[in-house]
Design a protein around this nucleic acid. Structure first.
Length: 547
RNA sequence: GCGCCCGUAGCUCAACUGGAUAGAGCAACUCCCUUCUAAGGAGUAGGUUACAGGUUCGAGUCCUGUCGGGCGUACCA
C-alpha cells in the first residue's frame, strides 16, 4: 500500500518543474490520530523550500493531480500545515484480509533481500564457561535478527566464532587441573585468576571417574585437562542454545585463520601498502591512517598476534566466502575493537560497508528489586540455564527482545516469573490461545462447507476495522525491524495487535451470531492468530493453542 | 582527559529514523465476571522529554555546551 501511495504521488509530482535530485524521498506514515486517516504523507512540506511555495498550496495541487484507485483509497484530504491524509477503502481492507488467509504462515514474508547472502555472527563466547545472562541478549538478538532477515528473503547463515588457544583457555585447563588434584585429595590452590565456577569441579569429577589418578603425574600439565573441559563446555553451550531455539550453521575456530596462512598473508599485504610497520619489537597497524589517534599493535613483541589480527582475517574470510553482508553482534564493551577490523578489511581492499555491527548495551539482572552484578570468572554469575529454569525459554527470549538493543536492559526476574498480569509475553500468547479456543468451539458447534467463502463485507464494526488495519501493518513492521536490526519493534507491534484483538473480542461475539457473521468473524480471528503465530515464530517464542 | 552509548510519567520502557494532541506496562485509585479463557476490559491520576542555547514550516528525535549515569580508552579477549 505504501508503495502504491508513493507511486501515485510521484506521478502527480510530474506537474511540478522538478529535477530528479530535487525530489525528496516520499515518506508515508501512519498518523497517530485516527482522525488523520490511515496513511499520510508530508511531501508537500518537504517540497515547500524547494518550490518556494506555501505547503498547503502544494498539497492542493498534488491532490488535484492524484489519480487513485477508488477500490483502494476512499478519500484524500489535506490537513494541518500540509499533510496529505489517505483513508483506505473498505474493499481494500477485505481484499487484504483475504490475502492474509491465503498466505497463512508466509504472510509477512517479502523478497526485498532476495538473492542476498547474509552471515550473522553471534554469541561467539569462548568455551571457558556456561553462557551467562549477558550472552543471552547477544544470542537472542542475533538469532532474531537472522529470522527477520530470512523473512525479508535473504539467505542467512548463523555462525559462532571462538578461539580455544588463548591465555584464557590455558587458565581454564589449569583450573580444571587444580580441581582434579583437589578431588584426589591433593592440597592445591586454584591458579591466580582461575575459574571458580562449580562447573569446573564437575568437569574434574568426570575426569576422576574416567581416568582415576592417572593424570596426576602427566608431564603435559594442561592438555589433558583443557581438551575435555572445552568439549564439555561446548556441549553445555550447545544445549543451552538449543533450549533457546537457536541453531548455529557453523562454529568457526579462530585457529583456521592461523592454519591457512591468512594471518601472515594479511600482515604481508599491509606491509606492502605501508600500513604495517615494526616498532619496539612489535608489529603495528597504522590505524591513524583511518582516523584513530593511535596506531594499533597487530603482533606483540612475544610474536603472538593480538586478537585484532585474527579478527581481521576472520572478516576477510567471511567476505571471501561470498557473503553480501556480514553482521556482528556484540556488547558495548567491545565497541572500540570493530573500527580496527573495519579499517583492516578496508586496507585489504574489501568494501567495509558489507560489515555491519549490532552493539547492545549491558543487561542488569534484577532480583528481589535489587541489581545483581556478574562476572564469568568469579562464580557469582547467573547462567542462562538457571534463568530459563526460573522463567522459561519463551520469557527469556521475550525479555531480551523487548528493548532497543542500544539501551540498557533491566531484566526483572521477579516480573518475568509472574505468570500473569505483570508479564507481557503472556498477553500475546494468551490472545493466540484464546482465538484457537474460540475456533475450536466454532468447529464443534457449526459445520461449514469447506468451499464457503466468508462474507468479509460483514465486518463493519469499528473494532473489526481497526483489527484488520492492524493486521495489514505486519509486513512493513517486519521490514522496518529487519532493516533497523531492532526486534523490539516487532514486539511493540504485536502488543498493539493483541490489544486490537482484545477490543474486538469484547465488542464482537462470534458464537451465537448469524451463520454468515460467525464465518466472517472466525476468518478475522483466524487471520489474527496467524499473524500472532508468525510474529512469535520470528521471535522464537511458542504460540500455544491452549493455556 | 578523550571516544562511544544513554537520560522521556513514581518504576521499566515505546514513539514508525524530523511530523499533527509524547504512548504502553507495572505501581495507585474507581468500576466490570449467570455470555466464546477476568492470564481480560472500561476509566481516573501521573510530563517544562535532565538543563541551556541553536538549526526550520515543525525537535523527544539533528547541532553546540553543561550536568548526571554506563562502557571503553592494553604489546587482555
Amino acid at each position: 500500500m505504501k508503495d502504491y501511495l508513493r507511486s501515485i504521488i510521484k506521478q502527480s509530482l510530474q506537474q511540478f518543474d522538478l529535477s530528479d535530485n530535487n525530489i525528496p524521498e516520499i515518506q508515508i506514515e501512519k498518523p497517530n490520530q485516527p482522525e488523520h486517516g490511515d496513511a499520510a504523507s508530508n511531501i508537500a512540506m518537504n517540497l515547500a523550500s524547494v518550490l518556494k511555495m506555501n505547503p498547503r498550496k502544494i498539497a492542493e495541487q498534488i491532490v488535484e493531480g492524484l489519480k487513485h484507485d477508488e477500490q483502494k483509497i476512499q478519500s484524500v484530504e489535506i490537513a494541518g500545515p500540509g499533510f496529505i491524509n489517505f483513508r483506505y477503502a473498505e474493499n481494500y481492507l477485505f481484499d487484504e484480509l483475504a490475502d492474509i488467509l491465503n498466505k497463512g504462515s508466509t504472510f509477512g514474508k517479502s523478497d526485498s533481500l532476495k538473492g542476498k547472502r547474509i552471515l550473522v555472527e553471534f554469541v561467539s563466547a569462548n568455551p571457558t564457561g556456561p553462557l551467562t545472562v549477558g550472552h543471552g541478549r547477544n544470542a537472542v538478538l542475533g538469532d532474531t535478527v537472522a529470522n527477520l532477515l530470512e523473512w525479508t528473503g535473504a539467505d542467512v547463515d548463523r555462525e559462532y566464532y571462538f578461539n580455544n588457544a588463548g591465555r584464557q583457555m590455558r587458565k581454564l585447563g589449569e583450573s580444571v587441573r587444580a580441581r582434579y588434584l583437589q578431588e584426589l585429595g591433593h592440597d592445591t590452590d586454584l591458579p591466580e585468576g582461575g575459574y571458580e565456577g562449580e562447573y569446573i569441579i564437575d568437569i574434574a569429577k568426570g575426569l576422576v571417574k574416567e581416568y582415576g589418578d592417572s593424570l596426576v603425574g602427566s608431564k603435559e600439565m594442561i592438555t589433558p585437562f583443557k581438551g575435555p573441559a572445552e568439549k564439555e563446555i561446548f556441549d553445555m553451550i550447545q544445549a543451552t542454545l538449543k533450549r533457546m531455539n537457536i541453531e548455529m550453521d557453523r562454529f568457526f575456530n579462530e585457529q583456521e585463520v592461523y592454519d591457512d596462512g591468512s594471518i601472515d598473508e594479511i600482515v604481508k599485504k599491509l606491509r606492502e601498502k605501508d600500513l604495517a610497520y615494526d616498532k619496539d619489537g612489535a608489529t603495528w597497524f597504522r590505524t591513524t591512517e583511518f582516523g584513530k589517534d593511535q596506531d594499533t599493535v597487530l603482533i606483540k613483541s612475544t610474536d603472538e598476534p593480538t586478537y585484532r589480527l585474527p579478527d581481521i582475517a576472520y572478516h576477510a574470510n567471511k567476505l571471501d566466502r561470498g557473503y553480501d553482508q556480514c553482521i556482528d553482534v556484540f556488547g558495548a564493551d567491545h565497541i572500540d575493537t570493530y573500527p580496527d577490523v573495519l579499517s583492516g578489511i578496508e586496507a585489504l581492499g574489501y568494501d567495509r560497508s558489507k560489515v555491519d555491527v549490532i552493539v547492545y548495551q549491558f543487561v542488569t539482572l534484577v532480583k528481589d528489586g535489587k541489581p545483581f552484578k556478574m562476572s564469568t570468572r568469579k562464580a557469582n554469575f547467573v547462567t542462562l540455564d538457571e534463568l530459563m529454569d526460573e522463567v522459561g525459554a519463551d520469557v527469556t527470549r521475550f525479555f531480551f527482545e523487548m528493548r532497543d538493543p542500544n539501551t540498557h536492559l533491566e531484566f526483572d526476574v521477579g516480573q518475568a516469573k509472574e505468570a500473569g498480569e505483570k508479564n507481557p509475553v503472556f498477553y500475546l500468547q494468551y490472545a493466540h490461545a484464546r482465538i484457537h479456543s474460540i475456533l475450536r468451539k466454532v468447529e464443534q458447534e457449526y459445520s461449514f462447507d469447506i468451499g464457503d467463502e466468508p462474507t468479509l463485507e460483514l465486518l463493519k464494526h469499528e473494532s473489526e476495522t481497526a483489527l484488520i488495519k492492524s493486521l495489514l501493518r505486519f509486513p512493513e513492521m517486519i521490514q522496518s525491524a529487519a532493516e533497523s536490526r531492532e526486534p523490539h519493534r516487532l514486539i511493540n507491534y504485536l502488543e498493539d495487535l493483541a490489544s486490537a484483538f482484545t477490543s474486538f473480542y469484547h465488542d464482537c461475539r462470534i458464537l451465537g451470531e448469524e451463520k454468515a457473521l460467525i464465518q466472517a468473524r472466525s476468518a478475522l480471528a483466524k487471520a489474527t492468530a496467524q499473524v500472532l503465530a508468525n510474529g512469535l515464530g520470528i521471535l522464537g517464542i511458542s504460540a500455544p493453542e491452549k493455556m
